[in-house]
């Protein structure tokens, strides 16, 4: 039997491999790997390491989008949790520091969830509130400056490694495995999809759609806060003005590249994460290429357009017809 690529996801996997190959063409040392201070070192590692925050955000965002929602506040939540972690890092133990940072993320998610599920505010408006206010809260915590820390424990989340694999990648993979086990190992995923497909019917069928909605926003907040801790640990400081700035858009883009409709009802965690990797592979490639920075956004937009076009039903139908004709 020949290897059959899954129909779903072949476009994304193909795009990812293609981008990696293009990166290799513009920069021949792209696949070079070596160990540096016990940590894998190379451009390919950078793609995964730098992509970890957006991968985490995409994991959270994809479930929110599956319930027909959207979370614009993830960038701001990153800034808040990073600020909390950096402020507490040198005065408290890592357990308290991390607990507080991730707890804040859960709390932000709870706030969004209540606004959406209980008060029935449209998700884009409800989360816009925290997107705007959240950065202000983060700036209040850091008093507008970049709070630096020296704690080795917190620094591990950005610069550390496990068996040579950078810590951010480890954390993203662990989060993905946990999420997959919870969502696809149980009926949870089905219930989330049902909530997004038809909330009223799901409620009548006995699904607690309110609980589902609050839960996915909390998961999204949790993922965002973990991403915020990673970003703060990476630069050994919390920059409330810039941490996670515009990353909510990258996260939504990652989810969209991963395939699901913004109208909810179906989702793929793995493909959303792959979407995040595609974005980062592209970023890393642009940086390696040496093109003038004015072209960055143009290149990015073109690649995204191509990846999205590859998935449009019309183009797929056209391709199928073409292949049938030649066979």
């Amino acid at each position: 039997m020949s290897i059959v690529l899954p129909r779903k996801g072949s476009a994304q996997i193909g795009a990812f491999i293609l981008i990696l190959l293009i990166n290799w063409l513009v920069s021949p040392q792209f696949f070079d790997l070596r160990l540096q201070d016990g940590r894998l070192f190379g451009s390919l590692v950078d793609v995964f390491n730098r992509g970890a925050p957006v991968m985490l955000l995409a994991m959270g965002m994809v479930l929110v989008i599956a319930t027909r929602g959207i979370d614009l506040s993830v960038g701001a939540v990153m800034a808040i949790s990073g600020a909390v972690a950096a402020t507490l890092a040198d005065s408290h133990s890592i357990v308290i520091c991390l607990g507080a940072a991730l707890g804040v993320g859960l709390l932000c998610g709870l706030w969004n969830g209540i606004l959406v599920a209980v008060l029935r505010i449209q998700p884009i408006v409800a989360t816009l509130i925290l997107m705007v206010a959240g950065r202000g809260i983060a700036q209040l915590i850091t008093e507008g400056r970049i709070v630096t820390f020296t704690s080795r424990d917190l620094a591990w989340f950005g610069g550390g490694s496990l068996f040579g694999v950078p810590a951010p990648v480890v954390l993203a993979v662990v989060a993905l495995v946990v999420a997959l086990a919870l969502v696809r190992g149980t009926a949870l995923g089905l219930m989330i999809e049902a909530t997004g497909a038809n909330a009223e019917a799901s409620r009548l069928a006995g699904i607690d759609t309110r609980l589902m909605t609050v839960a996915v926003y909390m998961w999204c907040g949790f993922c965002a806060s973990l991403a915020g801790v990673i970003v703060a640990a990476d630069i050994l400081g919390a920059d409330a003005n810039n941490a996670g700035l515009w990353l909510e858009l990258d996260a939504i883009l990652a989810v969209v590249i991963g395939g699901p409709s913004l109208f909810g009802g179906r989702f793929s965690l793995v493909l959303a994460v792959l979407g995040g990797l595609i974005i980062q592979a592209m970023n890393t490639g642009i940086l390696l290429s040496g093109y003038p920075p004015e072209l960055n956004l143009v290149i990015k937009a073109t690649v995204v357009l191509v990846v999205l076009l590859l998935q449009t039903p019309r183009l797929i139908a056209f391709k199928d017809r073409l292949f049938r004709g030649t066979r």
């Binding site: 040392q29 190379g42 451009s43 950078d46 730098r50 990476d234 810039n242 940086l287 390696l288």
Partner: peptide, 13 residues
């Protein structure tokens, strides 16, 4: 800082 670090990583490679 974040972008400065990321871009420098790619310069080095």
């Amino acid at each position: 800082r974040t972008k400065g670090k990321e871009v420098m990583e790619s310069f080095i490679k």
